[in-house]
Each structure stands twice: as C-alpha cells, then as structure tokens.
C-alpha cells in the first residue's frame, strides 16, 4: 500500500462557519490594529515606522481574512462511525485525528458568544490522553446535538476506564 492515503472524512461543517471564522479573525486583527492606532496617536516618536507597521498589519489581516476561512472550510471535515471518530482540521497546517469510540471519555458541546451569533456549536471529544482531543468547529446546532447524543450512546456501550 505504497500509495495509501487517508480519505477525507465524510461530513463538511456548516457553511455559516466561514462567516464565523471570518468574524473571529477580523475581530482579532481589529484589536491589534486598534492598539497600533492608539500607540500612533499617543507616541510622538517616529511616525513613519508606526504607519509602516500599521500598513503591514492591514495587509496581513486582509490576506488572512480573505484566505483562511475558505481554506479552513475546505479542510475541516468530520465523521463518526459506531467504532471511531475521525476529524480533519487546520488550513496551512492540517491534522487528521482518529480515536476509537471505546476510548472516549467525555463529549462536550460548547457555544461561545460568537458561535451563538451565527447559531453554531462546536463538539469536543476527549480521550484519556491529553494529546488527543478531537474538535469539530462550526457545526449547526442540530447536527452538534445529534453528534453528541450519538457519541455518548456509543461510548456508554463500552466498559473500562478507557486508559
């Protein structure tokens, strides 16, 4: 199996997630830019350096906000079978994670303020290893609830302390 590869997980996340990621990234950049503007106004040193730094920030921000959400949406996928959970995430750096359902310890679903705004939720599946939580971002609420219910039911069917 020299040319073996992992196929992408079956399910995409909600399309709304693109807007969620865009907003989240934009807010972060806005904060950085605001700090720089305040500094520019208060500090009466070399204006040119400040302006150049601000311009660099704006260029980086536009590039990031334009590229990252689309790219992330294309990469981020998930799948849950009765035996295993399989996710792919990231954009510039991508990561596949596979964990057997028998080793699941907790299944959490969280909705932050931004996620509530876009009516999204994320699901985090943790195992006994601190290195291996599987996170699915940007699911619509119904799918998230269904996934949690399904995983919880599957995980309960197996015994042991999952270490």
């Amino acid at each position: 199996m020299d040319n073996a590869t992992l196929r992408p997980p079956l399910n995409r996340v909600s399309r709304t997630a693109i807007w969620y990621w865009t907003t989240r990234a934009a807010l972060g950049w806005l904060f950085l830019a605001a700090v720089q503007v305040v500094w520019l106004v208060l500090d009466d040193g070399d204006r040119a350096v400040h302006v150049a730094a601000l311009a660099a920030t704006v260029v980086a921000a536009v590039a990031h906000v334009a590229v990252m959400p689309q790219w992330r949406y294309r990469v981020h996928r998930w799948e849950a079978t009765p035996a295993a959970v399989f996710t792919r995430s990231g954009w510039f750096k991508q990561e596949w994670r596979i964990a057997p359902v028998s080793r699941i310890q907790t299944v959490d679903s969280r909705r932050g303020p931004l996620e509530q705004l876009f009516r999204l939720a994320n699901v985090t599946v943790t195992t006994a290893s601190a290195a291996g939580p599987l996170k699915v971002d940007g699911l619509d609420r119904d799918t998230a609830q269904r996934l949690v219910a399904e995983l919880t039911a599957n995980a309960q069917a197996t015994a042991g302390d999952a270490t």
Binding site: A4, E79, A83
Partner: peptide, 17 residues
C-alpha cells in the same frame, strides 16, 4: 474504514454515517 488508495479496503457504505 478511512483509508483510500493502495490495497486498503474501501469504506463500506453501511459502516459510514
């Protein structure tokens, strides 16, 4: 179930959600 290419077994429809 998640492998593709090579001599890996393709994912059976029934196993997949």
């Amino acid at each position: 179930p998640f492998l593709a290419g090579g001599d890996a077994v393709p994912a059976a429809e029934g196993q997949v959600r």
